[in-house]
Amino acid sequence: ESETFDVELTKNVQGLGITIAGYIGDKKLEPSGIFVKSITKSSAVEHDGRIQIGDQIIAVDGTNLQGFTNQQAVEVLRHTGQTVLLTLMRRG
């Protein structure tokens, strides 16, 4: 069981404050995608409180990250504006 949710964030001096990890899993058993690996102290993400380590980032400002490499996803996140809309999925 999984839930998908949107989080809109405004960057602070730390930026968004997440590091991400790309993961290619076994299609049947484990998900592939871009996941939140860590959250920086005092960052926008930590202050917001809704995003957790292990959440999958589905889209950034409407750009679907399906099939993106870790590096491609980093580039998408790097080129966002001051306000960012993240679409995430959390597995229950």
Score class of each variant (00 low, 15 high):
Thr87Trp: 00
Gln52Asp: 06
Arg78Leu: 05
Lys11Pro: 06
Val13Phe: 11
Leu65Arg: 00
Leu9Pro: 00
Val13Pro: 15
Tyr23Gly: 15
Asn70Asp: 14
Asp48Phe: 03
Leu65Pro: 02
Lys27Leu: 09
Ile18Tyr: 04
Val45Asn: 06
Lys27Pro: 14
Gly62Cys: 05
Ile24Gln: 14
Leu86Val: 05
Thr10Met: 07
Glu1His: 05
Asn70Leu: 14
Arg90Val: 02
Ser42Glu: 15
Lys28Phe: 10
Leu65Tyr: 00
Thr4Leu: 11
Lys37Trp: 02
Glu3Ile: 15
Glu1Arg: 07
Phe68Ser: 08
His47Met: 11
Ile51Ala: 01
Leu85Ser: 14
Lys11Leu: 04
Leu29Glu: 13
Val74Pro: 03
Asn64Ile: 08
Ser42Pro: 08
Gly17Gln: 02
Gly54Asn: 05
Asp48Pro: 04
Leu86Asn: 00
Gln72Gly: 08
Thr19Leu: 05
Leu77Asp: 04
Ser2Pro: 07
Ser42Val: 06
Val36Trp: 00
Leu16Phe: 07
Val45Ser: 09
Lys11Gln: 09
Thr63Phe: 09
Ile53Lys: 08
Lys41Phe: 03
Gln71Met: 10
Gly67Lys: 08
Val74His: 13
Gly22Thr: 14
Val45Glu: 08
Gly62Ser: 05
Ile53Asp: 04
Leu9Phe: 09
Thr19Asp: 12
Ser2Phe: 15
His79Gln: 05
Gln66Cys: 11
Ala44Pro: 13
Gly92Cys: 10
Val36Ala: 01
Gly33Val: 04
Leu88Gly: 04
Gly54Glu: 01
Leu88Trp: 01
Gln52Val: 05
Thr40Cys: 10
Gly22Arg: 15
Gly49Thr: 07
Glu3Lys: 15
Gln14Asp: 14
Gly25Thr: 13
Ala59Gln: 06
Val74Phe: 10
Thr80Pro: 04
Ser43Ile: 08
Asp26His: 13
Thr83Phe: 05
Leu77Gln: 02
Gln14His: 14
Gln52Trp: 06
Gln82Pro: 14
Thr19His: 08
Lys41Gln: 12
Leu29Gln: 14
Gln72Leu: 06
Gly49Cys: 05
Val7Glu: 04
Asn70Tyr: 15
Ile18Ala: 03
Ile53His: 03
Tyr23Val: 14
Gln14Glu: 10
Leu16Trp: 08
Val45Trp: 06
Thr63Asn: 11
Phe68Glu: 05
Val60Ala: 03
Glu8Lys: 13
Ser2Leu: 12
Thr19Phe: 02
Ile58Asn: 01
Asn70Val: 15
Ile51Thr: 01
Ser32Phe: 07
Arg50Ala: 06
Ile58Ser: 01
Gly92Arg: 13
Gln56Val: 05
Leu77Gly: 01
Ala73Ile: 07
Gly92Pro: 14
Arg90Cys: 01
Gln56Gly: 02
Phe5Pro: 01
Ile24Ser: 15
Ser2His: 08
Gly62Val: 01
Glu75Met: 04
Lys11Val: 05
Val60Tyr: 01
Arg50Gly: 04
Ile24Thr: 14
Phe35Ser: 04
Ile57Met: 00
Lys41Ile: 05
Thr40Gln: 14
Tyr23Glu: 11
Gln14Tyr: 11
Glu46Arg: 08
Gly92Ile: 12
Val84Ile: 06
Asp48Asn: 09
Thr63Trp: 03
Gln66Val: 09
Asp48Ala: 10
Ile51Val: 12
Thr63Ser: 07
Ser42Cys: 11
Met89Ser: 13
Asp6Met: 09
Gln66Gly: 10
Glu75Lys: 10
Glu3Phe: 15
Val60Lys: 00
His47Lys: 12
Gln71Asp: 11
Gly25Asn: 12
Ser38Gly: 15
Lys41Met: 06
Tyr23Asn: 15
Val74Trp: 11
Gln52Glu: 12
Thr63Ile: 15
Gly54Gln: 02
Leu77Val: 06
Leu86Asp: 00
Asp6Gly: 05
Lys28Ser: 12
Ile24His: 15
